[in-house]
Design a binder for these strands. Structure first.
Lengths: 202, 202, 202, 202
DNA sequence: CATGAATGAGCTTTCATTCAT
DNA sequence: CATGAATGAAAGCTCATTCAT
């Protein structure tokens, strides 16, 4: 005799977010209309507002989720013994798993954040967390002699994150590019940046 | 009964594009209306269509111009004796000169291209040119022993270009970041990537 | 298997009407949504329709109640010995007790009635009752020599009622007006209108 | 070769306001949609916003115009020799000329002003002007011995104005009322209020 | 009795584009 | 060349009401 079923509510929210994601991938944040999202989610136009206060709230929720997922992945990395190798492996998996969708949405988030303060705040907050995670990861690597101790961990983490997350746009400007070789090149870039000078190259 | 003066026409086009740029920086491609652009350019709403077929044509023209400018800058680099040093200097000047505007517009172009085939085509065409330019530049560096001969020039050029152009989004996700130190970090990243293994670090 | 308890039902109806009144004072009949009313009454949106057929039924019920209350007050006046004095005292208490709420709602009722036949009917029916009450009151005053015998009681009652009930709008168009002095002025107006010509002024 | 024709623009604005007035009389400020107004004015839905910033701007403009017209009428009164007689004559003409429309709109304005600060401001500003006009009118009457010198002109003006403007709602709550006799009653009310005590009644 | 998910029409407003002047 | 009036589709959002549970 439960009055409210918060599980069902959350489940529906998740479904709507997934529908929204598909629409946003197709047309971007501005290009996808709330009607599109409702149609994709199989609900009526007004009902969307039972679950989200506004279209912007959907964008915000999706931004949050996207970056939370990324953080969860990095959390997993912290357990691996070889820091640099783990990071390089991560590059491979990042690119493969999310396909185009993730990259495109990340571009959308960046573009939106550059003029929408609410989204900017979420992006910055989550980015900071990711960087702190990566920085502590790098520090561990420095202690183990796997990462160049001369690198300031926080600034290095910011740069590495930006490069890795920005790699998705390679496909946009160079669709003809060979995925494997550009991924290899990217790993080489990161590897040379982080590896202590005296060490041999993989 | 003066004929259409093609110079005046082009001059006006340029003015409108500059006005459009200001509007797009403020609100993005979708967020800026043609009326905004007309107001900014000091012309009437209808008159815009004497100079551009559609709003998309404006976006296309601006994408072209933006990438042409970047190409022109790289052209200049080709004259410098030390290839890597020139590239690093370029990173500094890139960031300083265009400020936020350039980065934000580049994000817009990428986001737009990821779902608008017309813009994608322009972006890809111009990117290819830029990469060819940079690749031949790298090849020259390899001949002079300034660039690691093991790097495949085309793939390396793509990666380097992506990293440099994507650096603008650092400011979006990390507004608090110290510009100088992140610029230094970025230069170190590029330098370690390109420099032959045996050479000392700057 | 308890039957529907009509007392509980009526009690709930009253609670909802009170909640509705608060909402209508804030935003007017059109400006307050049924959801607002439900939230204010602490019930779920659907449950409202167990107590009222429609939003208009709530408005109608409130119109009825408001005018019934006014009638009850006038009923009390009928017992007082000095007719005009009782009426003037009533003016004071009317203004003080209902504050802004009563006036604003009366304005809403008038505005709504001017285009909603159902509400108009209620308003007219209840107004007629009030006027008959006041008219018989005036007749009594005429018999006692306290009210000018030359005044036709029904028409005079209509005018006096309109003036008194309309006084609430003074605060809307003149918020800076001194309440006491305008009340005094209003009492003078009514007093001079009703008092027989030969009699001295209070 | 005039570029803009402000006359045409103003003429169109006036036409739209007239169309809006008809719609507002029918359904009130909230009940009439912008689409209704556009249809009534014979323009497309979007084009309304060429002439008015928002629906509220239309309401505001109409409020202004309505009260300006009232002020213009009162201005005319200032010329008449017998102050009270002129005012009474005005009551007759007021009621006849504007028919139901004026009264209903005035009710709308009052109801709207009671919760919309922007409209309240306009109403209060214009009301103040009207009252100052009427007050100076009354002062003149006092000098000429036509108005009771004991009345404080400003407060008296506020009351008289409220009674006269509020008379329109008589028709709403008493549609069956005889216009002539209630008008006579109203004039008697005003006359007894203003006339010096010693003077005979008309 | 009571909930809140669900509907769908309708709201105000924006905007790229066209066209008579 | 240039204007700005005009269009009409579509946007995000609200709301009275219904209904399965």
């Amino acid at each position: 005799m439960r009055k409210v079923d918060p599980e069902r509510h959350d489940e529906k929210r998740r479904q709507i977010l997934q529908a929204a994601e598909r629409c946003f991938v197709r047309g971007g944040f501005r290009g996808a209309s709330t009607s599109d999202i409702c149609a994709e989610a199989g609900i009526s136009p007004g009902h969307l507002y039972h679950y989200f206060e506004s279209k912007e709230a959907i964008i915000a929720a999706m931004t949050e989720i996207g970056l939370q997922k990324a953080a969860a992945r990095f959390d997993g990395l912290m357990q691996k013994p070889d820091v640099v190798a783990a990071l390089l492996a991560e590059i491979d998996s990042l690119r493969l798993k999310q396909g185009m969708a993730g990259s495109m949405l990340h571009l959308e988030v960046l573009a939106e954040a550059s003029r929408n303060p609410a989204i900017a705040k979420i992006l910055q907050h989550r980015s900071r967390r990711l960087q702190q995670l990566l920085a502590s990861f790098l520090r561990k690597g420095q202690e183990l002699g796997q990462v160049d101790p001369g690198l300031e961990p926080d600034a290095a983490a910011a740069i590495v994150l930006n490069v890795v997350l920005g790699a998705g746009s390679l496909r946009v400007s160079n669709p003809h590019l060979d995925g494997a070789s550009s991924r290899a090149m990217l790993k080489l870039l990161i590897s040379r940046f982080l590896t202590p000078l005296g060490m041999a190259e993989t």
